[in-house]
Structure formats: structure tokens, C-alpha cells
Simulated scan of single mutants.
Amino acid sequence: MSMSKESKPILLTVILIAVAFVVFFANRLLPQNSIFPSETGDLTIPLGLFFAIDIGFIVALVLGVRTKRPSVVWFSIIANSIFFVLLSGLIFLLAIANSISEP
């Protein structure tokens, strides 16, 4: 089963949103094997994961703009731009929190 070129950016956007929620709520979902260490307060792993997801939103935006269907192009521009800005704000806040918690 092959995916069409028009469905790849939409599917990538949905997958990236799901992964961002899993990374954000990882401490609640898997408290024993958490990527957010509760004792040290080190946020470098979540920062790196959110940065990779942010780059994924840029890739999904580029893939969406290169399609021929106008509805996919508009969805890609609007959705990926909004998610990119929101996740960049979250990364900025996490970076500030990480710098405050470091000795």
C-alpha cells in the first residue's frame, strides 16, 4: 500500500502532534522510565526531542507546499506554522527552566 504524495504532509503533521503529546506527558504515562528526571531537573533530553519534532514540522511544511492540491498546501501552511510557533515557544520556556534549575 503506497501513500499518495498529498497525504504524506498531513500524516506527518498528525504523527508529530501525537509524538509531541507523548513526549510532553511522558512523566505521567511512564513514571518509572521517565525521560524527565524528577530528582535532577535536567531537561536536555526533552529539549532535544522537542527540537527534533520542531524540525519535523518544518519538513512537513515543505512537503505540503510542494504538493499540487491547494487544500493540502493551505492546511500545511496554517497547521504547521501554528504548531511550529507553539512548540518553539515551549522549547524557549523549557530552555529557560533548564537554565534556572542548573547550578
Rank of each mutant, 00 (worst) to 15 (best):
P46T: 01
G41K: 05
D54N: 15
S76C: 05
G41P: 05
R66M: 13
V23Q: 01
L61M: 15
I91W: 04
I35P: 02
D42N: 15
L49Y: 12
I10W: 09
S34C: 04
G48C: 04
F75Q: 00
E6Y: 07
N33Y: 10
A95I: 00
Q32S: 09
T13G: 04
L11I: 10
S4W: 01
F84W: 15
D54R: 12
I17E: 07
F50T: 03
S34R: 04
R66L: 14
P37W: 00
I53P: 00
K5M: 11
N33P: 01
A18G: 12
R28P: 02
I45A: 11
I91C: 06
S88I: 00
S71T: 10
N80S: 08
L93C: 08
A79M: 14
F51Y: 10
E39L: 07
S81D: 02
G89M: 13
A20V: 02
I91P: 03
L90G: 11
A60C: 07
L47I: 15
K8Y: 08
F51K: 06
P70R: 13
K68C: 01
F21N: 12
S4E: 09
F75H: 04
I58A: 14
P31D: 04
V62W: 03
R66C: 09
V22T: 13
I15Q: 15
S81C: 03
L29N: 03
P9H: 05
L87S: 02
